[in-house]
Design a protein around this nucleic acid. Sequence first.
DNA 1: TTCAATTGCGGGAACGTTCCCGCAAAAAAA
DNA 2: TTTTTTTGCGGGAACGTTCCCGCAATTGAA
Lengths: 353, 353
Amino acid sequence: MIEKSEKTGITEIARLAKVSKATVDRVLYNRGRVSEDTREKILNICKDLNYQPNILAQRLASDKVYKFAVLIPKYSRDNPYWKYPLKGIENAEEEIENYGVTIKKYFYDLKDIHSFRKESLQILTSKPDGIVFAPEFKRESKEFSKKCAHNKIPYIYIDSTLPKQHNLSYFGQNTYQGGYLAGKLMSLHLKRYSEVIILNFANELENYPHFMDREKGMRDYFAHNNFHGKITTLNISPDQEIELKELIKGKIHHRTRGLFITSSAHKVARQIQKIGKGRLLIQGYDLTTPNLKYLENGIIDFLICQKPVTQGYLAINALFDHLVQKKEIQKENFMPIEIITKENYQYYLDSNN
Amino acid sequence: MIEKSEKTGITEIARLAKVSKATVDRVLYNRGRVSEDTREKILNICKDLNYQPNILAQRLASDKVYKFAVLIPKYSRDNPYWKYPLKGIENAEEEIENYGVTIKKYFYDLKDIHSFRKESLQILTSKPDGIVFAPEFKRESKEFSKKCAHNKIPYIYIDSTLPKQHNLSYFGQNTYQGGYLAGKLMSLHLKRYSEVIILNFANELENYPHFMDREKGMRDYFAHNNFHGKITTLNISPDQEIELKELIKGKIHHRTRGLFITSSAHKVARQIQKIGKGRLLIQGYDLTTPNLKYLENGIIDFLICQKPVTQGYLAINALFDHLVQKKEIQKENFMPIEIITKENYQYYLDSNN
DNA sequence: TTCAATTGCGGGAACGTTCCCGCAAAAAAA
DNA sequence: TTTTTTTGCGGGAACGTTCCCGCAATTGAA
């Protein structure tokens, strides 16, 4: 309980420069109407004192409210993944609402390209100061990015990214590296002539670059570490769930020791539980509730996860730092690749993942 | 750029209650000198409006400065671990210094129990509002804890903890679980009658509960998963580094497939590099610069790591939340157990780990 | 009964900014 | 030259709190 010490505020600068606070303010924020002489004098004093504005006072005095918009897929019981980035976004919101920031959330349907278009137009008419969105639909996202740029609204990608765009930043996975690491873990368990099945839950892989990258990552690991066994890819449409059991059963034989699902593993795990797991090492993605059950009971051995909550949290904070704090933002931000098992999943559950 | 909307401030409450702002303030912060009637009236209005104080204005108006003290081991080239929690502490400091918080850091020498005593006394005479410290020396830390409590200074443990203390919170590892997970990874690589060496870099294990817990974790994993091989423990004093090579060489034979070092692995890795690694799977702790080299060149296979940067960051933030924001703090906070490999270590390097 | 102490409350400056308004001096236009 | 516009700057209210000071009313002590 000591009195505040340093007082390198705008008033002190004004006093030293023998001008008023208003003039200092004009210089600092380029509001014009200042002579070049006084401008330089003030800037020099600021440098000497290493002046850092008091952001509390700034936000308190300013009547400006920052409006952020978020556009992400809506989560469902079937695909709860997007619950987690949303959680992170809300965490960030709580922290910065005192600074006069409001966040409006928009959701689109992953199965309905029109919903993306519709919501993105909504966002533009609301004229936010910054946008965070998940560019799952490639073409539409590029279009939206262009419109954002045209309206001079900074935008940040989350979860996946697009090349050659003017996004302020990206927060998400490095899917290839995740697959590569999965390959390493898998290889610990493989013998000389074992077989591995890679299972993509999609028919047309072009629309799911995440899945492709993960598969490529694993295959490359094996290639770089001269694995002599066999790798089989199985592409199954999500609608084929009913035949899933037979499809898998038909592919597994006595040499099969690994099963890598390039997305959520719970549907497969359910079937494997019926068939019997045997010596199969099963890897999948994301620490979601349906997956959790099979991680706990030992069907799924590893889940790979890239901090979905943190993705949302950091993306919002980046926008805040850029717009409010005027800080520099890193363009590429890959989340660490986490390996979740029965033994450590508890520590990933409710904290900031 | 819209004007701020809601105005549920203290002035609004005062207006509704037909009293002055000062009275509302007295009620809210129990400064006394208010009649029971007005007290209740004001509290009701606050509840109705769901009043949340504006922390920016609070910190701005208040002339109170919070002084935090931090006491952790000093880091060295030999043991760079403590660099990372310090980093997290400094990150947190940057964020909250605008709120009128100053953090004074004290360092002690892990090999010199007196330095801990000396620094902790220093801290007490400086009368901080809160303390974060690493209770590495058991007896002295308990004593210090008692003194803190006596002076009514809240204190938070970091990195390791002590039972039955009145610490506000703990941020750190769950060492047992880390060892257990290491056992799981190890087991992927083991065959039916393989051998594993557990290496503790210490003579008297009682002083290193972390090491003991890690060993126990691994042994328990094997016990729970009926591993039939042999587990050998090797306790080596840190001064014995010269004979290290021979010591290890003597223990490894053709069935040895795993080496688990319960602390930093780089010294062992250096010797293994000379001996030749063979089929050995090597696991150690912490993503520090010396370890990194051997992770990159493939000598070390896994490093287990528990977010040392985050530990520091969160501990300071907890103190802030408790003292400044008057929030509830969770007592036990285990960091997630991260598994670092050649393939993913880059993503753990400079971000907030 | 008188005087002191206590209780209950209001006024208002201060925190470090933002930003509107006003005004003299200088420059440009007439 | 006179009038208008522009430039350069200062004054000061406001943001939502904290907290000191002052003062009337009530209570207690003598």
